[in-house]
């Protein structure tokens, strides 16, 4: 699925830029941008190289923060804090992640990631989330294929449940808003709906034949091996 989205993004970009350069489409908003770069295609080329560079810069920035949190997480893990967190939230976690054994460190790491996201601590959230993925992958019998627990975890993560959307408040305040905090309540409602939808969707879709992972000991499906329908291709 990521495969098709990746191809789609690039092909749409090329077609859209090509059509504009050839004069097939005229966008009033684009006039300034095109004049500045010469052509849309030139802008697309530049963006491709810039983005590749940005990706590495992001990772370099992340390595230090990652190292710090992984160090702290190891301490928290050895001190039993991560397991404690997992035990306290056991009733909820058992329903969300039935495949993860009680008291597994993955549970604690996932809780800490979700908590960091809710508090708007982006810098802490990513390393904790990657730690959770590492722990979940230890339970994964088929390396390279996502497990149900991973998909449910990422469903909650990408639904963006936040108590204080600090960046958004900053942007509104910078634009001269008289009441930036008005959007906190609407954001909570919208992200609450998104989170519940995400959990329900994850639980339903994981059972569909095209997304299902064959269990151990089950023979490969007749239509061509365990990877048939991989990535949920349409």
């Amino acid at each position: 699925m990521l495969n098709w989205i990746w191809i789609g993004l690039i092909l749409i970009a090329l077609m859209s830029a090509g059509a504009q350069d050839l004069g097939l489409i005229h966008l009033p908003e684009a006039a300034g941008h095109v004049a500045e770069k010469g052509s849309r295609m030139a802008a697309v080329t530049e963006a491709a190289f810039d983005s590749a560079k940005t990706a590495v810069n992001i990772v370099i920035g992340l390595i230090g923060i990652m190292a710090m949190w992984l160090g702290l997480m190891r301490l928290a893990d050895k001190a039993g804090l991560v397991q404690l967190l997992a035990r306290v939230l056991k009733p909820v976690l058992r329903r969300l992640f039935p495949d993860v054994p009680d008291g597994h460190p993955a549970l604690g790491a996932m809780v800490m990631n979700i908590a960091a996201n809710m508090l708007g601590l982006g810098n802490a959230a990513t390393p904790l989330g990657l730690k959770a993925m590492e722990e979940l992958d230890k339970l994964n019998p088929r390396k390279g294929t996502a497990t149900n627990a991973m998909c449910t975890f990422l469903a909650i993560n990408t639904a963006g449940l936040t108590l204080i959307p600090a960046t958004v408040l900053g942007i509104l305040a910078a634009a001269g808003s008289k009441a930036p905090y008005a959007i906190i309540s609407t954001t909570l409602i919208a992200s609450g709906v998104a989170t519940i939808t995400a959990i329900i969707a994850a639980k339903i879709l994981e059972r569909l034949p095209i997304f299902r992972v064959p269990r151990d000991g089950e023979g490969p499906p007749p239509d061509g091996g365990p990877d048939a329908g991989k990535d949920g291709s349409p």
């Binding site: 699925m1 590492e134 998909c151 994850a202 990535d231």
Partner: peptide, 16 residues
């Protein structure tokens, strides 16, 4: 997240 554990078959994650 998937990249960090080398997962390429992402199943229903994108749809969800």
């Amino acid at each position: 997240y998937f990249g960090s554990v080398a997962i390429t078959r992402t199943r229903h994650a994108v749809f969800v």
